[in-house]
Design a binder for these strands. Structure first.
Lengths: 220, 220
DNA sequence: GTCTATAGCCAGATAGAC
DNA sequence: GTCTATCTGGCTATAGAC
């Protein structure tokens, strides 16, 4: 409310008003949530007039959706790139893949980058079904999950292909939990380092995947 | 907005206005989120006048907090009871504990019970830090996690006690993922049964815990 | 305890000047 | 493209009748 000074002025950004509004949206929506941010605050932070949101995006909600599209799209693409990079090396183990995927994500949330906050906010919206799940959850994440499933099957061939999606989803759950609740982790384990956490996650998930592949050869 | 007919009338509930308001709060807040529900809607759904929220709870936000306190408190207690019950039996395996804890939670979200929705909403609020994390996240869940850590150590004694909290947190992550994203699970795996899902989760988490306990012991 | 009526405020969108 | 001024409508909280 008392935030009326522009925080994304022309000096900070050589881009146009549209980009300044997207930056202001990321900062303010992540901090307070959609309903607690007014168009007046957004335009004040972007250093433009109140009509600009409607002029450039067609409304507050459209600006919100555009903000997610930008961040989530680049995050999915970054993950796909990481997978290609690690799988192109010789002698890759399951642990290498897991660590390569997890590390940049955890680093991003620990270092409190805007991207991490936007993804948290997106999860929040998915939980409340107030955003277009068609586009984000299914199309984008579906593509990433399919790729992950294929490379995990490549590294651990004796998983039942019909179950690989469940394995990928559990992998996703293992990543998402610290991603979402990092404050809680740090609160109850103040000495936890990022490497401790990564080591644990890699070990836990790798064991889960391998143990899932060979349950208990009792004649099945 | 057009929802103006009372949905929790005196016939449904022999309790007083206070309980009808709590029921209306669970239904409406879970559906639309705090900011999208007006006091007018709440009181219309509870079949009372608009002043009742302020009279009984001291404001819309106090009613919101009270709703969480009720549901989250009983959920933690139910989990603690389940743990006591399963651990009192002879010859309990890790898998028995995991399944006993997971089953009622997953059933609750699959059958779309109000309790499950309230917990989802609570996670949403924790993600946005707009609720008193002191009370909920640390005190209540801390108690449950401590108990879980002790019984897991009892069942799998060779886990490093300094790492048991990380193991419990990964267990929590494994439960929370389908709990939060059940619609997504059902969308990409329409034939998934509750038992398939439970079997997978038990197998994945048990392997993760056991593999974590003994990282490289090929001859066990 | 229960209710109505209203005070006081702030929102998103837009018309129209420049 | 940019801005100001304003329209229209919603909200929470409360004063005060019963």
């Amino acid at each position: 409310m008392e935030q009326t000074k522009p925080i994304f002025t022309q000096e900070g950004h050589k881009e146009d008003v549209k980009n300044r509004l997207l930056d202001a949206a990321e900062a303010l929506f992540c901090e307070k949530g959609f309903d607690r941010v007014s168009v007046r605050e957004l335009t004040a932070a972007a250093g433009c007039n109140v009509a600009a949101v409607n002029y450039y995006f067609g409304g507050k909600d459209k600006l919100y959706a555009e903000m997610f599209r930008r961040q989530f799209g680049t995050m999915i693409q970054r993950n796909l790139d990481v997978i290609e990079r690690v799988m192109s090396q010789p002698g890759v183990a399951l642990e290498d893949l897991l660590r390569a995927v997890m590390k940049p994500l955890i680093r991003r949330v620990i270092e409190n980058e805007t991207g991490g906050k936007v993804i948290r906010l997106l999860v929040r919206e998915i939980l409340n079904r107030q955003i277009d799940r068609e586009l984000f959850a299914r199309d984008m994440k579906g593509q990433l999950f399919a790729r992950l499933g294929r490379v995990i099957l490549q590294l651990v061939p004796d998983i039942d292909p019909d179950r690989i999606l469940l394995v990928v989803l559990s992998f996703d759950g293992a990543i998402l939990h610290p991603f979402l609740f990092m404050e809680f982790y740090q609160e109850i384990m103040p000495d936890l380092t990022i490497d401790d956490l990564l080591d644990h996650m890699v070990r836990f998930v790798a064991a889960g995947i391998r143990g899932y592949a060979k349950p208990n050869q009792e004649g099945n």
